[in-house]
Computed example of a mutant assay.
Amino acid sequence: MTRYQVRPATDRDAEHVAAVHATSLQAAYAGAVPPSPQDLPMAKRVAFWRDAIEYGEPFVQVATDESGIVGFVGYDRSRDPKSKATTGEIWALFVLPRHFDKGVGLALWDAAREGLLEEGCTDVTAWIALLNDRAMRFAELAGFKRELASARTAVHGSVKLEEIRVRRTLN
C-alpha cells in the first residue's frame, strides 16, 4: 500500500484540489449522470476551492504521494440549520480514481476526524448521493449510519440527485 501524507491545503493547491474534485465526480457518476453544459466551469471550481482554502470554510486538507495531490477533504461545522453546535460535517471527500481503494480516503477521514475533534465536535455528518455506491460503502465502513428520514433531492448543476445524510460519533 502506498504511503500518503496529509497536510493542510495552501493557496497553491487550489487548482489541484479543483482537478481532483472534477475528476472524481466524473468517475463517481459515469454512466449514471450525463455530463451537463451547466457543470461548474473549472475556473469557478478553482475559485471556490481557493476561497475555501484561504478562509478555512471549509477547512481543506490534501493527501499527497510522490506524484502530487491525490485527494482532499473539506470539513467544518455542520451547515444543517437545526444541528447542534458540536456537530461537524464532511463537506467533501474526493480521491483520484487511480487511488481508489488504496487508503487515501481513510487517511483523509482520519485527518478530518482529528480536526473536528480539535474544534470541539462530538459527532459528524455527511450528505451522500444515493447512487454513489462507492461513497456510501466508504461511509458505512467508517462507521457512519444512514439517517433515513433525511433523504432529500439536491440540485447539482442541471442534475437532481437524491441524497441522504449519514452520521457517526467522533469518539
Rank of each mutant, 00 (worst) to 15 (best):
N132Y: 09
R113I: 10
V124S: 13
T122F: 07
V124Q: 06
L131I: 11
L131W: 02
A111W: 11
D101A: 12
V104M: 12
E119S: 12
A126E: 05
L131V: 09
L106F: 08
G103V: 08
I128M: 14
W109I: 11
F100A: 08
D101H: 13
D110P: 08
W127N: 02
A126I: 15
L116E: 08
L116Q: 09
C121Y: 04
G105H: 12
A112W: 12
R98K: 02
G105D: 14
V124K: 10
D123T: 03
L106P: 03
A112M: 11
W127K: 04
G103T: 03
L116C: 06
R98G: 01
A129I: 03
H99E: 14
V104P: 01
G103C: 05
C121N: 08
T125R: 14
E114K: 13
D133Q: 13
L130W: 10
L131R: 08
V124C: 15
A107M: 02
L130R: 12
E114H: 10
E114A: 08
A112Y: 11
H99F: 11
R113S: 12
T122P: 11
E119N: 11
G115W: 09
T122V: 10
E114N: 07
I128G: 05
L131F: 05
E114F: 00
T122Y: 04
L106I: 02
D123P: 02
A129E: 08
D123F: 09
A129G: 03
G120H: 04
F100P: 07
A107H: 00
V104K: 04
K102R: 14
D110T: 07
E118C: 06
T122Q: 15
T122N: 12
H99Q: 15
E119L: 15
D101N: 13
N132L: 04
A129W: 07
R98A: 05
V104S: 08
L106S: 11
D101G: 05
A111D: 14
C121H: 05
H99C: 12
T122W: 08
L108F: 05
L130Y: 03
A112I: 09
A111K: 12
E118V: 03
F100H: 13
H99T: 00
T122I: 03
G105P: 15
H99L: 08
R134V: 00
L116Y: 04
L106Q: 12
L108D: 10
E114W: 06
W109E: 15
V124H: 06
G103H: 06
G115F: 02
G120T: 03
I128E: 05
G105Y: 12
L106T: 13
T125Y: 06
T125G: 00
I128W: 13
T122M: 09
L131G: 11
L108Q: 06
D101S: 13
W127M: 01
V124N: 10
D123A: 02
E114G: 08
E118Q: 13
A129D: 10
